Simulated assay, not measured.
Amino acid sequence: MSRRPEIIAATLAGAGALCTVLALACAGRGNVTPASTELLPPVPAQQLRTPDMFTRITSRPERSRALFLEASRVMLHPRCTNCHPAGDSPAQGELGQPHDPPVFRGAADQGVPGLECTSCHQDKNLAHARVPGAPKWHLAPRSMAWVGLTPHALCEQLKDRKRNGDKSLEQIIEHSAHDELVAWGWAPGWDRVPAPGTQEQFGALIAAWVQDGAECPTEEARP
């Protein structure tokens, strides 16, 4: 009975140490996840935050990660992922349904003989036929598949010249901001939901991401 106070004191000391360890672990984890994105103002689903909204994030690496998360809302949208499949066929629609009629990428990612992409897809949308179109319509190479990727994996792929079409970061900025096929994502025609924001805003986000160090978000981060 006389040792009970000592036992209680030891127990409380151990509990205190455990709480300290847990607190430090949680604090460390906060440096890894993009909690700073909580500082950003909300925007409607079809809009993008502009780079100036990210200046309130004072850490340059965290700001870069947050900028990429915002840009990933475009790249992981169906208007983009449908043409960035991991398999041999594109998808269509808002849920990534199989392409109808069935088609295949072919050796040059432009279809197979007798059924090339341009057999149906012209350099502009065909309103009456409801067929989308834009210049140089084709599938992204298999190495540039985006379907099912996290923003972290997408970021790492985009920076890897072996998996991004051998583009430098400066070329990626130019491609994002001015490519005509990319532009189709905001003018898809008929009743298709466009990618959020505008191509100009998307290009500006990519440029700001590169300027701040082209950092990649954590694997757990989601926009």
Rank of each mutant, 00 (worst) to 15 (best):
135 P>I: 03
114 G>C: 07
159 K>N: 04
89 S>P: 06
66 A>S: 13
15 A>E: 07
58 T>Q: 08
69 L>S: 10
48 L>T: 06
94 E>R: 15
154 L>H: 02
214 A>C: 04
190 W>E: 14
4 R>F: 10
78 P>K: 11
167 K>Y: 11
94 E>L: 15
214 A>E: 05
73 R>C: 15
205 L>H: 06
57 I>V: 02
37 T>L: 11
105 R>Y: 06
53 M>G: 12
115 L>T: 02
164 N>E: 06
68 F>Q: 00
124 K>N: 05
197 G>I: 02
70 E>N: 00
160 D>P: 07
132 P>Y: 13
92 Q>I: 14
128 H>M: 05
144 M>S: 07
36 S>P: 00
30 G>F: 12
112 V>K: 06
122 Q>M: 14
22 L>D: 05
39 L>R: 03
156 E>V: 09
219 E>G: 14
189 G>V: 08
88 D>F: 15
161 R>A: 02
216 C>G: 12
49 R>A: 07
8 I>Q: 13
139 L>R: 08
118 T>E: 15
106 G>R: 10
88 D>R: 10
222 R>L: 03
65 R>G: 14
17 A>K: 00
12 L>R: 14
54 F>R: 09
104 F>W: 10
136 K>T: 00
81 T>F: 13
210 V>W: 01
111 G>C: 10
127 A>G: 00
181 L>W: 01
69 L>K: 05
2 S>M: 01
62 E>K: 00
48 L>D: 04
193 V>K: 15
160 D>W: 04
81 T>G: 03
107 A>D: 07
3 R>W: 02
54 F>C: 01
210 V>Y: 02
166 D>K: 04
23 A>G: 15
177 A>Y: 00
220 E>R: 01
217 P>Y: 05
176 S>H: 09
179 D>A: 04
25 A>K: 13
162 K>F: 01
182 V>E: 10
218 T>D: 15
14 G>A: 14
34 P>N: 12
7 I>E: 15
58 T>S: 14
216 C>H: 00
106 G>F: 13
136 K>G: 11
197 G>D: 03
168 S>D: 09
18 L>D: 05
118 T>L: 14
175 H>M: 04
78 P>I: 05
52 D>Q: 12
14 G>S: 04
104 F>Y: 05
13 A>P: 02
143 S>I: 13
129 A>P: 10
133 G>Y: 09
170 E>C: 04
92 Q>Y: 06
125 N>M: 14
122 Q>I: 06
